[in-house]
Computed example of a mutant assay.
Amino acid sequence: MTPKILFTAGETQFAQYREPLTAALAEVGVSADLGRDHAPNEVDYLVHSAHSGEVTDFTPFTRAKAVLNLWAGVETLVTNPTLTQPLARMVDNGMTEGMSEWVAGHVLRHHLDLDTFTLNQTGWSHPPVPPLARDRRVGFLGLGRLGRAAAEMLAALNFDVAGWSGSPKNIPGIDTFHGPEGLAPLLARSEILVLLLPLTDGTRNILNAERLAQLPHGAVVLNPGRGPLIDDTALLAALDSGQVGAATLDVFRQEPLPADHPFWAHPRVTVTPHVASTTRPQSASRVIAENVRRGEAGEPFLHLVDRAAGY
């Protein structure tokens, strides 16, 4: 029987995904009925985005073998009591590369103090010479797939890179810290701090006033991970005091970021509109197609979410 795939991520995205997903399914030998209007009790797979809000009650999808998320973040899905089907998050080489490039670009921007020349330069002057990359300490909170890839890219550029995770990691060329006892040492050496943790009860507000104070004075904070990883009020206070020298933020507690939010007007804050790692239809379609193939073959799905861990 031909599996039915319901695309619930919105009409605009469906227009972008229809051809590459159809092609990707054909490449793995799956003939599927991909559409937007299948009856819930006839659906075998949902290609889903929590951002679209089209499906919040998964109870009617009694035949569904899996919900295949288009994004890496699943914090709004793991708490949905109606979602009892297997849930797979998006783990995609295109997203990984895009994130690494965003992180590397903004680390280099702050490392070289490029804003001095592009925004504030009014004459021929010579600001302080920055250290070489080997003398700039960059820290990562989060060493999963995205964090590790971005950390390795910066290490390849000769930065002094370290990272922290909840459990032990062994990454050649990168100093690693883990567990509650490893957080303070990581923060203390991070002149530029990158947040790439999943959002869970244990990571919410992980960068609060106490931990911001543990950073070197004038440190830079980059957050392409999840907005609620940072206590906004504490970050604004640290920026005002100079404890944090600058922040580049791609994710926020409320998106789009409200027009009256203080981040917009703060001279030490750069806002980017959740573009650090956009899902790209060509590469993401191959991930979705492979999971549909696996489901039809009775094989284990890739990138299944651990509901207890939250990611």
Score class of each variant (00 low, 15 high):
residue 94 G to E: 11
residue 96 T to P: 03
residue 89 R to G: 01
residue 110 H to K: 05
residue 110 H to G: 07
residue 110 H to T: 10
residue 88 A to M: 09
residue 94 G to C: 08
residue 118 T to Q: 10
residue 113 D to Q: 14
residue 104 A to M: 10
residue 95 M to F: 10
residue 87 L to Q: 12
residue 116 T to H: 11
residue 103 V to N: 01
residue 90 M to R: 05
residue 115 D to P: 08
residue 106 H to G: 01
residue 105 G to S: 08
residue 99 M to A: 03
residue 117 F to I: 13
residue 85 Q to Y: 08
residue 95 M to L: 14
residue 96 T to V: 15
residue 98 G to S: 13
residue 109 R to D: 12
residue 84 T to R: 15
residue 109 R to P: 05
residue 101 E to S: 11
residue 113 D to G: 08
residue 101 E to R: 13
residue 88 A to S: 15
residue 113 D to W: 03
residue 84 T to S: 04
residue 118 T to H: 07
residue 103 V to G: 01
residue 105 G to P: 14
residue 111 H to L: 11
residue 88 A to R: 12
residue 92 D to I: 02
residue 88 A to G: 13
residue 84 T to K: 13
residue 108 L to M: 14
residue 91 V to F: 12
residue 105 G to N: 12
residue 99 M to S: 02
residue 97 E to V: 07
residue 99 M to Y: 02
residue 98 G to Y: 07
residue 86 P to E: 10
residue 90 M to Q: 10
residue 110 H to F: 11
residue 97 E to P: 00
residue 92 D to T: 02
residue 110 H to V: 08
residue 88 A to V: 04
residue 90 M to C: 04
residue 94 G to R: 07
residue 104 A to Y: 06
residue 116 T to E: 12
residue 98 G to R: 03
residue 85 Q to M: 05
residue 103 V to H: 00
residue 99 M to R: 01
residue 92 D to N: 05
residue 91 V to L: 11
residue 114 L to S: 05
residue 106 H to D: 07
residue 114 L to M: 13
residue 117 F to L: 14
residue 105 G to I: 09
residue 103 V to K: 03
residue 101 E to D: 15
residue 90 M to Y: 09
residue 108 L to I: 13
residue 106 H to F: 14
residue 88 A to N: 13
residue 109 R to Q: 14
